[in-house]
């Protein structure tokens, strides 16, 4: 990357109102550090306290989702490296926040993920609450690392329908991206 590329990247970040961006391997300590940065950034913004809690919550669900997926699905060290790497972008548009995330998933998992998100998108607010409560009552599946509640929680927190995209990546991977408006 040269100076010109840096400017081009900055222009994209500015145009998209990105106030925080991260791209790279996600470890628990990176998640904590970045989470602290998000909370600190928001501290001055006291009348937005509800939004702040929501932004932090969506951020944690998205990043821990990526790590849990990598831990469960990775086949070998190289696969772990690819699956455990994430992109996190926080945008401030006017007075509301949006968070974008992106990560690679196995091509074989794309259809199931897409079906799961479409099911969630088909639910209205009471439907989301009912689905959330049902999941809460279900036993945790053997070996599961998450409660299966993350996307439901994110959808309930989002002020607009969540937006997702699955686009071709090299080899056996698909790039999954998600946008959540708070």
């Amino acid at each position: 990357m040269n100076a010109h590329d840096v400017k081009a990247l900055r222009d994209i970040l500015e145009r998209s109102h990105i106030i925080l961006s991260f791209n790279g391997p996600l470890t628990q300590s990176v998640i904590e550090e970045l989470g602290d940065a998000i909370r600190r950034h928001l501290e001055g913004d006291s009348q937005q306290s509800r939004h702040n809690a929501d932004l932090f919550s969506v951020y944690i669900e998205l990043t821990q989702n990526i790590r849990n997926y990598a831990a469960q699905r990775a086949q070998d060290a190289e696969d772990t490296r690819r699956l455990n790497s994430g992109t996190v972008l926080v945008a401030l548009e006017g007075d509301s926040y949006a968070i974008h995330s992106g990560n690679l998933i196995h091509r074989d998992d794309a259809a199931a993920l897409s079906a799961r998100l479409d099911d969630i998108l088909a639910l209205d607010r009471p439907g989301l609450k009912a689905a959330y409560k049902e999941r809460l009552k279900n036993p945790i599946e053997d070996g599961a690392m998450g409660a299966g509640l993350g996307f439901l929680q994110i959808a309930r927190t989002s002020s607009r329908p969540i937006e997702y995209d699955l686009s071709d990546a090299d080899g056996d991977y698909v790039f999954f991206s998600l946008t959540v408006h708070l």
């Binding site: 944690i60 999941r135 809460l136 998450g146 409660a147 509640l149 993350g150």
Partner: peptide, 9 residues
């Protein structure tokens, strides 16, 4: 102060 969904479950 804050619970992720795994903690909530």
């Amino acid at each position: 102060a804050y619970l992720n969904t795994g903690s909530i479950k």
